[in-house]
């Protein structure tokens, strides 16, 4: 993670703020920083989203490809995550400097999406055992201002929502060989169901208290965090994966509290995101806002 220079006094100040439930930027322990989200801004990708959470900037592009399903799961499509920590974020990421962080992020996303309840892999299957969609979710980290896990998962979910898969029709040729016809019409497409797609919530322990959405400075004060993957099903929040990051340890009761906090926050965040994305989708024609991207 990007290095933040903090003195002991500053760390104590942050710690006291967390104890008082009044953080440096005026938030309480359960508050998020303001977010900006835009979808569909990379024209070379099937789906894309850019999320800016205060100073954290994430760009996600989804690319699609037709592949053969795995032998053990013939009815499942495939997902592949790739995280690139751009040197734009910090000079430490130059060359291979960001690969450790990238691996960590890829692993936690993979874990969260692993369960077929968390992501409907069946919807990506074209012909069981023969052909399926493979989605490459390419995540680009452009600026690190803390709370990468949450930002990355939010952006990934938004990009999946934005992804358009061209409609595929199969025709049966002789000798049982099937031939796929992919529609050329850019409007003849299907969407991916994102209701159950998990979000990651980082619950950060500072002193004796847990908080969400830590800024880069707050992350530097914390020894241990809990990343909670929350997946929504039938309007109920489920846990689809969790892991601890950082070198410290926490008591079992604290851990349970963290999980509870993460779950309730994730539930709320998810509902908000889905509501916002649906709103944006409904704005078509002249009402559709122009894509601003980085020009804002």
């Amino acid at each position: 993670m990007a290095y933040v220079a903090l003195s002991e006094a500053e760390k104590t100040f942050i710690l006291h703020g967390v104890e008082e439930d009044y953080r440096c930027d005026g938030r309480s322990r359960r508050d998020y920083r303001p977010m900006e989200l835009e979808t569909g801004l990379v024209s070379n990708a099937s789906g894309s989203a850019r999320l800016r959470l205060a100073n954290t900037d994430i760009l996600v592009g989804v690319k699609t490809e037709i592949d053969v399903p795995h032998q053990l799961t013939p009815e499942f499509g495939k997902l592949e995550f790739f995280v690139d920590c751009s040197a734009n974020a910090t000079p430490e990421f130059e060359g291979r400097g960001g690969s450790d962080l990238a691996q960590e992020l890829i692993l936690s996303l993979k874990n969260a999406y692993e369960s077929p309840f968390a992501f409907d892999y069946r919807s990506l299957c074209l012909i069981p055992g023969q052909q399926c969609w493979k989605l490459y979710i390419d995540i680009l980290i452009l600026e690190c201002g803390g709370n990468l896990y949450d930002a990355v998962s939010l952006a990934a979910k938004a990009a999946l929502f934005n992804t358009k898969l061209p409609r595929v029709t199969a025709t049966l040729l002789d000798a049982g060989i099937t031939d796929l016809i992919i529609s050329d019409n850019p409007y003849d497409c299907t969407r991916i169901g994102i209701e159950t797609v998990p979000l990651l919530v980082t619950v950060c322990k500072i002193g004796d208290f847990c908080l969400v959405d830590p800024s880069a400075e707050e992350e530097a004060c914390s020894t241990v965090s809990m990343v909670v993957a929350v997946s929504q099903r039938n309007n109920e929040a489920f846990l689809s994966g969790t892991h601890m990051t950082g070198g410290g340890s926490m008591h079992r009761d604290t851990m349970l509290n963290c999980l509870q906090l993460g779950l309730s926050i994730g539930d709320y965040l998810d509902k908000l995101l889905v509501k916002m994305l649906k709103q944006e989708q409904e704005r078509v024609g002249p009402k559709r806002p122009k894509i601003v991207g980085f020009l804002k």
Binding site: N44, G61, K63, D84, G95, Y136, D138, L140
Partner: peptide, 19 residues
């Protein structure tokens, strides 16, 4: 000191590595 990298989704064919 320069670094040039290209996002994996930047081209119509997906790139395997950014740099």
């Amino acid at each position: 000191n320069c670094q040039y990298s290209q996002a994996t989704f930047s081209t119509s064919e997906r790139k395997n590595r950014p740099r």
